[in-house]
Design a protein around this nucleic acid. Structure first.
Length: 318
DNA sequence: ACCTGTCAAGTCTGG
DNA sequence: CCAGACTTGACAGGT
């Protein structure tokens, strides 16, 4: 069984390579309006070219997964920038980025921020969420990447009634265009919607589920991971890429929900021991403050466990 | 060179 | 009902 690893957004090894450079409206308001567009355009270009550097670096280090930041284009979905035609202005840049994605063979994804909520009772929040999803989807399309490149979402808020909120999630989802629907995959969260909840929704909608094993510890399902992992991975049937899980460790016993700088190898190995023999290949997205450094350290730490057959730069065989 | 406050967003809690 | 916490990284401005 082969497992490939990746990390989120920022490389701690590469210097001057932020994929996240931004500007706020408050600061733009201090300068003349005539330079607003050139300012955000310049930052977006820097972000895209830094992402290209990151992808090439990932390839060189054998890192096969990478999550884009949601802030590639500053203020892309801000009402003040509705007139700004970033799709055409940055077309060439995204085409180049897409070529590098294909050339490096890295499985890229996005994870919209926590204000993207398909089950909000507020129409405005839903409308803004759809705009944000359109932005993410459009970037993939400009890169020329097929629907196997996914957008990971949570179910959303609870709003005092889980049943109603899940119903509203279905309603929100049904309002999405097919091009967006075909990229959405869902993840269990650390407070509200458990592995079981999300699995049930994914089965109903016939879309893949990302299992976050740390979230399942914070917000446990009534059934153990071992009992459901096969069903979770079955939601990926027919997909081009293998199932994906998220891996992180708690910052401390008191701050269990916060991410640690690194990954606790004991916890991950315990998970592997539980599911060994039940699944085929899968991918692991590491969510740790030290990003790629955490990944590299985990690979190093894994060398102390005998049952792992082979350890690569960012992959293992069990 | 470092530190603090601000920004952007929506939900939820506590008073 | 409203203020603050939560989350995350970048950045502005002050020391």
């Amino acid at each position: 069984m082969e497992i490939n690893f990746g990390y989120v957004a920022i490389s701690m090894k590469l210097k001057e390579a932020s994929p996240n450079r931004t500007v706020t409206l408050k600061n733009l308001e201090k300068v003349d309006r005539s330079i607003w567009y050139s300012k955000v355009e310049s930052l977006a270009r820097q972000n895209i070219s830094n992402i290209i550097r990151i992808l090439r670096y990932n390839k060189a280090y054998g890192i096969k997964l990478y999550r884009f930041t949601s802030k590639i284009i500053p203020l892309a979905t801000h009402p003040e920038f509705e007139e700004w035609d970033w799709k055409n202005i940055l077309k060439i840049d995204f085409e180049e980025l897409g070529r590098v994605v294909k050339e490096t063979g890295i499985r890229v994804s996005t994870h919209p921020d926590h204000f993207v909520l398909l089950n909000s009772p507020k129409k405005e929040v839903l409308d803004n969420s759809i705009k944000d999803l359109d932005y993410h989807c459009t970037m993939f399309e400009l890169m020329g990447l097929g629907t196997e490149y996914k957008i990971v979402l949570h179910i959303g808020g609870m709003y005092k009634n889980k049943e109603d909120s899940i119903k509203r999630f279905y309603e929100g989802f049904s309002q999405l265009s097919d091009r967006i629907k075909s990229r959405i995959i869902l993840e269990n969260d650390d407070k509200l919607y458990t592995m079981e909840d999300v699995l049930s929704i994914c089965r109903t909608l016939n879309i893949p589920m990302v299992l976050d094993i740390h979230h399942d510890i914070c917000n446990p399902s009534s059934v153990k991971v071992k009992e459901l992992i096969v069903d979770v991975f079955n939601t990926w049937k027919g997909e081009i890429f293998p199932p994906k899980i998220h891996l992180s460790s708690p910052k401390s016993p008191k701050e269990i929900r916060s991410h640690h700088d690194y990954i606790n190898p004991d916890e991950f190995v315990a998970f592997l021991e539980e599911i060994i023999g039940l699944t085929g290949d899968f991918d692991v997205m590491i969510e740790a403050k030290m990003k790629d450094m955490a990944l590299i350290k985990l690979m190093e730490d894994m060398k102390n466990y005998d049952f792992i057959k082979k350890i690569g730069d960012a992959s293992i065989e069990v």
